[in-house]
Amino acid sequence: MTDHTYTPPKVWQPSENGGQFANINRPTAGARFERELPQGEHAFQLYSLATPNGVKATVMFEELLEAGYADAEYDAWLINISESDQFSSGFTALNPNGKIPALLDRSGEREVRVFESGAILLHLAEKFGAFLPTDHTRAEVLSWLFWQVGSAPFIGGGFGHFYAYAPEKYRYPIDRYAMETKRLFDVADQRLAEGRYLGGDDYTIADIAAAPWMIPFTEGTIYNEAKNFLAIDEYENVARWAKEIAARPAFKRGRLVNKSWGEESEQLRERHSPADFAGKL
């Protein structure tokens, strides 16, 4: 076994360590170049990419439209993180954290910026009065929403990075984050043994938040052989829930928006009207 022993220096300094996303990673924030963001005709302007966090926002918009909220029409603009689009002056003005998704809400008297996927879901749920209960179950839904928000870094930046993207394979971090990812699936599986959805009897923003992360594991479409490596099939209640949500028309549409890879029929780099889905589904 290769000796990967590392003694941290007294003061850390960044190094060129390779990896799939090494070219965009820096220990500083802020704009790296000047570029304004495009804007369309709708009240809501979304800037995103079809990663699990980005899919949360597009699914939410599509679910609102599916439910009859015509005022939820939106323009979705592609932010290609591999090309550092997220570090433009326009994007960092909308999201100082430089991460997708980010939303400009022009529906009120003044423009409002919303960044972080969980905040976007909560903002839209409250604005439209949808997918978030107002009775005693509200706290349960919000608890599961923030459970997902808090757990995503362990799955993505933790397990996903060290298992699929790191330039070298280290057993300790892979074991550490594999254990945590399986624990999180077990949390969800036990919860879904109690009811149809994470928040209770109704489909809510808790499910919209969790599904884009968990469904790809059940399908085997994320992080190479992660489905087999983590024995995802053993989480039968998650599988039942994932299959149901993946079949929703709005979820199918939301997964395509701001997707710029794969088969042409499975991607939609920008979305400006329902007509953009023609021939895609």
Rank of each mutant, 00 (worst) to 15 (best):
E180K: 00
K182A: 10
K182Q: 15
L184N: 15
D186R: 13
D186S: 15
V187Y: 11
A188L: 15
A188I: 08
A188E: 03
Q190N: 13
Q190F: 04
L192H: 07
R196G: 07
Y197H: 13
Y197F: 14
L198I: 01
G199F: 12
G200A: 11
D201F: 13
D202P: 05
Y203V: 02
I205T: 06
I205S: 09
I208G: 00
I208R: 05
A209K: 11
A210D: 04
A210L: 13
P212M: 03
W213N: 10
W213F: 14
M214I: 15
I215T: 02
P216K: 11
P216A: 09
T218F: 08
T218C: 10
G220Q: 06
G220A: 04
G220N: 08
E225W: 06
F229Q: 01
L230H: 03
L230K: 07
I232D: 02
D233G: 12
D233A: 11
Y235P: 07
E236K: 15
E236C: 02
N237Y: 03
N237W: 00
A239T: 07
R240E: 14
W241G: 11
A246Q: 10
R248S: 08
G254T: 09
G254P: 04
R255S: 02
R255I: 06
L256W: 00
N258I: 05
N258A: 15
K259F: 01
S260W: 05
W261R: 06
G262L: 01
E263G: 04
S265L: 06
E266P: 07
